[in-house]
Simulated scan of single mutants.
Amino acid sequence: MQTLIIVTHPDIKNSLINKRWIEELQKFPDQFVVHQLHEAYPDGKIDVLAEQKLIEQYDKIVFQFPYYWFNSPWFLKKWLDEVLLHGWAYGSKSGYPILGKKITLAISLGVTEEELNPGGIYKYPLAELTRPFELSFEYVKADFRPIFAYYGIEYHATPDRIEQSVDQYLDFLRAL
């Protein structure tokens, strides 16, 4: 069974980590389907029915994005607002098409893990900062799984570290 990877990156051409992850994922089309929102909808207009049908096809879904300003890129929030509609994703008339699907996040961060802790500059761990995603996916009855986070791109974006992240990400996805 394939895993759907929904990528939201506003500048994928200049990305170090996310671009490299996509390149590697595309080598395994029998395992992963990469769906880049900015590529699919360059005008920002989402085909809601197409996205809902896409979601219905997969039991494992990963939202991959760079984390900045303590959130996801705006286009992912727009996608969530427009695709996870009342009557389709939740509500009394919903068939709960996301029920039991394994959903997680794959996040690249410029900051280090130490900076995202009570003693760090940003005070809160990533699990707390991503709680809205967890609650949203639990609300639509998905099986929200622990996230994959790659920290410290601002400090450690060496070719060796990038390649290390690829192996770690693939291991994470295959264990999902």
Rank of each mutant, 00 (worst) to 15 (best):
49 L>S: 15
51 E>M: 05
41 Y>D: 09
18 N>H: 15
82 E>M: 05
77 K>E: 12
33 V>G: 00
83 V>M: 10
62 V>H: 02
43 D>G: 04
38 H>L: 15
18 N>D: 07
25 L>P: 00
52 Q>N: 10
84 L>H: 03
37 L>H: 01
44 G>E: 10
62 V>R: 02
35 H>A: 01
72 S>A: 15
70 F>Y: 15
53 K>I: 06
21 W>Y: 04
53 K>W: 04
20 R>C: 03
25 L>F: 13
27 K>M: 06
27 K>L: 13
31 Q>G: 01
83 V>C: 08
27 K>I: 02
53 K>D: 12
74 W>T: 15
55 I>P: 05
50 A>F: 12
36 Q>K: 07
52 Q>C: 10
47 D>K: 08
38 H>K: 13
76 L>V: 11
78 K>P: 02
35 H>S: 06
35 H>C: 03
70 F>I: 03
73 P>G: 07
24 E>S: 06
56 E>S: 12
82 E>G: 01
69 W>K: 04
72 S>M: 12
55 I>V: 15
48 V>T: 15
61 I>D: 05
47 D>P: 09
44 G>P: 08
59 D>Y: 03
53 K>N: 15
19 K>G: 07
20 R>T: 15
62 V>W: 00
85 L>M: 11
53 K>E: 13
67 Y>G: 05
21 W>A: 00
25 L>Q: 00
18 N>F: 04
48 V>G: 13
83 V>I: 09
64 Q>P: 00
29 P>F: 05
60 K>S: 10
76 L>C: 10
59 D>I: 02
18 N>Q: 10
61 I>H: 02
62 V>T: 02
72 S>R: 00
71 N>W: 01
67 Y>E: 03
47 D>I: 13
47 D>R: 11
84 L>K: 03
25 L>A: 03
56 E>L: 03
62 V>I: 15
17 I>N: 06
77 K>N: 15
26 Q>D: 11
65 F>G: 02
42 P>F: 09
54 L>R: 13
39 E>C: 04
81 D>K: 04
41 Y>K: 11
70 F>M: 03
36 Q>P: 00
17 I>T: 13
24 E>F: 01
62 V>C: 06
59 D>E: 14
57 Q>I: 08
68 Y>F: 14
17 I>F: 14
38 H>S: 13
17 I>P: 01
32 F>L: 00
85 L>E: 14
64 Q>F: 02
59 D>S: 14
80 L>I: 14
43 D>R: 06
51 E>P: 05
78 K>H: 07
46 I>W: 02
78 K>C: 08
61 I>T: 06
61 I>W: 01
75 F>G: 10
23 E>L: 09
44 G>Y: 11
81 D>G: 05
40 A>W: 02
76 L>K: 05
60 K>A: 10
23 E>A: 06
28 F>N: 09
31 Q>E: 12
59 D>M: 09
25 L>E: 01
58 Y>P: 01
57 Q>R: 14
51 E>H: 08
77 K>Q: 11
73 P>V: 01
22 I>A: 07
